[in-house]
Design a protein around this nucleic acid. Structure first.
Lengths: 303, 303
DNA sequence: CCCGTTATCTGACTAGAGTCAGAGGTCATG
DNA sequence: CATGACCTCTGACTCTAGTCAGATAACGGG
């Protein structure tokens, strides 16, 4: 662990020096950095000021002023939103688009400059390692929260879940044929539905059905393809176990389909052992069970 | 290549956001960031102001003022250097040392916070990837220059070179018994001595002996253990080939000892092919030769 | 139409980070 | 011991980046 921290520290130091500074210098071209960053956040179709503010986490007065400077440079135009005339919508002018393309090019140059002194082999290794770092650092930003299973985010996840099972199961998947897990059953106090979000965007879910007496049941585990390999499934599963423990369950169980290899692997390596079928779920090939012990408990943050 | 740039760009973005900002917030505790950074650079034995300035790349007036604030906070003392009373030497007080230890701890905390949300497996992968990124990014900072073989840096490298051969060769290594490569022979116009430096510190070397007619000879290739695996040997070798080309050599050759496996691998993969012994170097087991062609030439920056 | 709310803008201010042009010691050298 | 080169310090600025307290306009419900 100490070694790990040492590596991370060296990394922080090197990277913020070698990239952080350069990055800022590149982006700030004759214009305050803040203005460039703002320009960067204005997408093709225009954004309202409120969104810009929250995206960059800036004070409203400050943003207003930055927009004014971009406007006087003729890089953007600000117009009222017709449907609500309090709201201003920011749009890039042609000059603004050109400026953004320029920033884009500089950003490419910076990236190329980092790779340039290296040979092909080192370059490939660096790129791969950077990809890994980037993915795993963002994984640290994923937040898992209990949400209403009928909510927008939950429904979005469930649709993806169903679509994925349908494409992966040999004979497709019809939710109606499967054992029920209605919004009612997955809402406290009879259950819990977890949504994992990355910067607000839902990228995974999982649910647990609680039974007054008897084992809790894991349902609806899904992780977006873009977020796989980050240990997110394990985190969701662990959170579900915590919710089950909190509801005084001693045992948690689940069934799964043979086509979901990663999931089966996850369950096995998370301490689940295969047991005889405990229900008649038509899509299941494996049934798993785990006894929730103190070791699970101590790694839970109770809510 | 475009893919690579895209990965690097995403990396730059994510990482500078996630770490750059945090890092600064952590380090700046109730004190301007600049002051903290300065405090950080003062090592146990004291530093002179000039060194601080060049290390951080700051204006002399600015540094002076920052030192003044640290002094009034009783974190440092500034004294004249007895041997040259123009120079001031900065030393940490006990309070300063305590403050630095505190910064140290915060830096550890930050590192731990990045690892904290991840599972063991992801954590290990992140740490490894960070190590790779850090090493390869610094590899990009290595500068290879022609220096005098009798100079301080060159001599330092040569001492390390001899020590290493002595420890790795089965029967030790006596430079006197080996074929000569004197400073005279490795200095322009009869040769060239290259030193690789990382942030000023010598970390590798290599030399070439030129002969009016006939092949050039590679000599004294060495890379510091701390810098291995960065492709530095290959870069030095390539530079030597360029120097040879510049001096109109058509062929370059070298001999090496069987105990230097990495070196043998490097030569083979750099286009050298093994040839019969072309000299009577007592320590050699392999003799290599390469014809310098246009492909080599086009990748050379001529000086 | 009034009133509380929301979205944006303006003015006044602060702190940090750094630049620039000397000033004033100190040293090495002829 | 005069002179130019060095090193550090001081004073006077500048520019970013950001905060805070209203002002102003528009909306939405009663």
């Amino acid at each position: 662990m100490d070694d790990e921290v040492a590596v991370v520290r060296r990394f922080n130091r090197t990277v913020t020096q070698r990239i952080g500074v350069l990055n800022d210098d590149y982006l700030a071209r004759a214009r305050p950095l803040g203005a460039s960053r703002l320009l960067w956040e204005i997408d093709e179709n225009g954004v309202d000021v409120r969104t810009l503010r929250s995206r960059l986490g800036l004070d409203s007065g400050y943003v207003s002023r930055l927009l004014r400077t971009l406007e006087t440079d003729h890089l953007i135009v600000i117009a009222q939103e017709p449907s609500d005339r309090r709201i201003r919508v920011v749009r890039l002018t042609d000059a603004g688009r050109a400026e953004r393309a320029q920033l884009d090019r500089l950003s490419d140059d910076l990236a190329a400059a980092l790779l340039e002194p290296l040979g092909a082999e080192q370059r490939a290794r660096l790129v791969e390692a950077m990809g890994t770092v980037e993915r795993l650092l963002t994984a640290g930003l994923v937040e898992i929260t209990i949400e209403d299973p009928a909510g927008e985010a939950a429904q979005q996840c469930l649709r993806s879940y169903v679509a994925e099972l349908d494409s992966r199961f040999a004979g497709g998947f019809e939710p109606e044929a499967s054992i029920s897990a209605t919004a009612e059953e997955l809402r406290p106090p009879s259950g819990a539905f977890l949504v994992a979000r990355l910067l607000g965007k839902p990228i995974g879910c999982g649910a647990v059905k609680l039974h007054a007496a008897g084992p809790a049941e894991v349902k609806r585990m899904w992780v977006s393809p873009s977020a796989r390999g980050l240990g997110l499934g394990r985190r969701i599963l662990h959170e579900l176990e915590c919710r089950a423990l909190e509801a005084s369950a001693r045992v948690i169980r689940l069934e799964t389909n043979e086509s979901l290899g990663e999931a089966v692997g996850l369950y096995r390596s998370s301490g689940y052992r295969e047991v005889p079928a405990f229900n008649d779920e038509p899509y299941a090939h494996h049934w798993f069970e785990k006894t929730l012990n103190d070791q699970t408990r101590t790694t839970c943050r109770m809510t």
